[in-house]
Simulated scan of single mutants.
Amino acid sequence: MKIHHRDTERHVLTITVDNEAGILAKIAGLFTARGYNIDSLTVADISEDHALSRITIVTNGPPPVIDQITAQLERLVPVHKVVDLTESGAHVERELALVKVAGKGDNRVEALRLADVFRAKVVDTTTSSFIFELTGDPSKIDTFVSLMRELGLVEVGRTGIVGMMRGAEGA
Rank of each mutant, 00 (worst) to 15 (best):
D116H: 15
D116T: 14
D116W: 11
D116G: 15
D116S: 14
D116A: 14
V117P: 02
V117A: 11
V117E: 12
V117Q: 10
V117N: 08
F118K: 07
F118N: 02
F118E: 05
F118H: 09
F118W: 05
R119C: 10
R119H: 15
R119M: 11
R119V: 11
R119W: 10
R119P: 03
A120Q: 05
A120W: 04
A120R: 05
A120M: 01
K121G: 08
K121A: 10
K121F: 11
K121Y: 07
K121P: 09
K121D: 11
V122W: 06
V122C: 01
V123I: 15
V123T: 08
D124L: 04
D124W: 06
D124P: 00
D124Q: 12
T125K: 09
T125H: 02
T125L: 13
T125V: 15
T126K: 00
T126S: 15
T126M: 05
T126Y: 11
T126W: 07
T127Y: 04
T127A: 14
T127F: 01
T127W: 04
T127K: 12
S128Y: 11
S128A: 15
S128D: 15
S128T: 14
S129Y: 08
S129A: 14
F130K: 00
F130P: 02
F130R: 01
F130I: 10
F130A: 05
I131G: 08
I131W: 00
I131R: 06
I131K: 00
I131T: 15
F132N: 05
F132S: 10
F132A: 02
F132Y: 14
F132Q: 09
F132G: 07
F132K: 07
F132W: 13
F132V: 12
E133P: 04
E133Y: 13
E133R: 13
E133T: 13
E133G: 07
E133K: 10
E133A: 12
E133V: 08
L134Y: 07
L134M: 07
L134K: 03
L134R: 10
L134S: 04
T135W: 01
G136A: 06
G136C: 08
G136Q: 11
G136V: 00
D137F: 02
D137E: 14
D137A: 12
D137I: 05
P138L: 00
S139W: 01
S139K: 13
I141P: 01
I141V: 13
I141M: 03
I141R: 00
I141H: 03
I141Y: 08
D142T: 06
D142C: 08
D142R: 12
D142P: 10
D142F: 02
D142G: 06
D142Y: 03
D142H: 03
T143A: 15
T143F: 09
F144E: 01
F144C: 02
F144Q: 09
F144W: 01
F144P: 02
F144K: 02
F144H: 03
V145F: 04
V145P: 03
V145I: 15
V145N: 05
V145G: 03
V145A: 09
S146R: 13
S146M: 11
S146W: 02
S146N: 12
S146G: 11
S146F: 07
